[in-house]
């Protein structure tokens, strides 16, 4: 546990003493803020129309009209930012050959991986918590439902965690950070749209592809529904990513 903490602390420090964390978080927040602004503006217009025509009033729901699409947008920004967050984790160690220090210290590969994973989760958490200001604003001026928003955030965090695990796996494969980022991005996007192939598949494959797709699980959570299937899906995705990273690192040393 102490070892994991040591690695985690070092990685968080590296993120925040270099420009990486600040640039990622700032760009992320600017984009999220812009999406939020557009959605609220649109919702406002809609409300004026509803005032004139009660038929619109039925559909007027801030959770569905602002938060649901907002979470959708955030998830796409995460798809683009997380590969950049995770690309350095192992690739950089290898390039600088600092991995030799880590692997000749009395600390296991698992502890190193979990420490790095935890550090990235922390950055993700900071990113998501900072967008929480937007929710607070809506609570101050409107009347949204709390639970769907909380579920949405939980879902975003779980999905981000799965993205990070995939990123760690690809970072462990190469010593080139750009390669790691591109492979991570490609894999995530592929998993995202895997359900598109479900239409052309038949029988069991439709279900399998639908289950594997990020999109399918994500749709639920933007609507504020958090199913155990989704939690299991994201947790197993994370576990699998980290497990693969562990295998890659171990096998490299034994070759």
């Amino acid at each position: 546990m102490k070892n994991i903490w040591a690695i985690c602390k070092k990685e968080v420090k590296t993120y925040f003493t270099s420009p990486i964390a600040y640039v990622l978080i700032t760009v992320f927040l600017v984009l999220v803020g812009f999406f939020f602004y557009s959605l609220v503006w649109w919702f406002n217009n809609y409300s004026f129309q509803a005032a004139r025509d009660p038929a619109y009033l039925q559909q007027l729901n801030i959770n569905q009209m602002v938060f649901s699409p907002l979470f959708h947008n955030i998830s796409i920004i995460l798809l683009l930012t997380i590969p950049l967050l995770t690309m350095r984790l192992f690739a950089e160690e290898k390039k600088r050959q600092t991995d030799e220090l880590l692997y000749t210290s009395p600390i296991s590969v698992n502890q190193i991986i979990i420490g790095k994973y935890a550090a990235s989760l922390f950055v993700l958490l900071v990113m998501l918590l900072l967008t929480g200001i937007l929710s607070i604003l809506t609570f101050a001026y409107g009347n949204p439902e709390f639970v769907p928003i909380l579920n949405g955030y939980l879902g975003l965090f779980l999905m981000g965690a799965a993205f990070i695990a995939v990123g760690i796996f690809f970072s462990s494969l190469t010593e080139n950070q750009v390669v790691a980022a591109m492979l991570t991005f490609g894999a995530l996007l592929l998993f995202w749209i895997l359900n598109w192939a479900a239409g052309s598949a038949s029988g069991m494959w439709t279900d399998v592809l639908n289950y594997l797709s990020f999109f399918q699980h994500f749709d639920d959570l933007t609507r504020g529904i958090l199913d155990t299937t989704d939690i299991v899906y994201y947790a197993s995705f994370s576990f699998f990513g980290l497990f693969l990273a562990h295998s890659v690192i171990q096998s490299r040393r034994w070759r």
């Binding site: 070092k10 420090k13 590296t14 003493t17 270099s18 600088r96 050959q97 600092t98 991995d99 030799e100 220090l101 000749t104």
Partner: peptide, 15 residues
């Protein structure tokens, strides 16, 4: 129980 200095210095430049 050992100390090891690898050929390429394992240093983190930003620390």
């Amino acid at each position: 129980t050992i100390g090891y200095l690898p050929e390429t210095l394992p240093l983190y430049p930003e620390m």
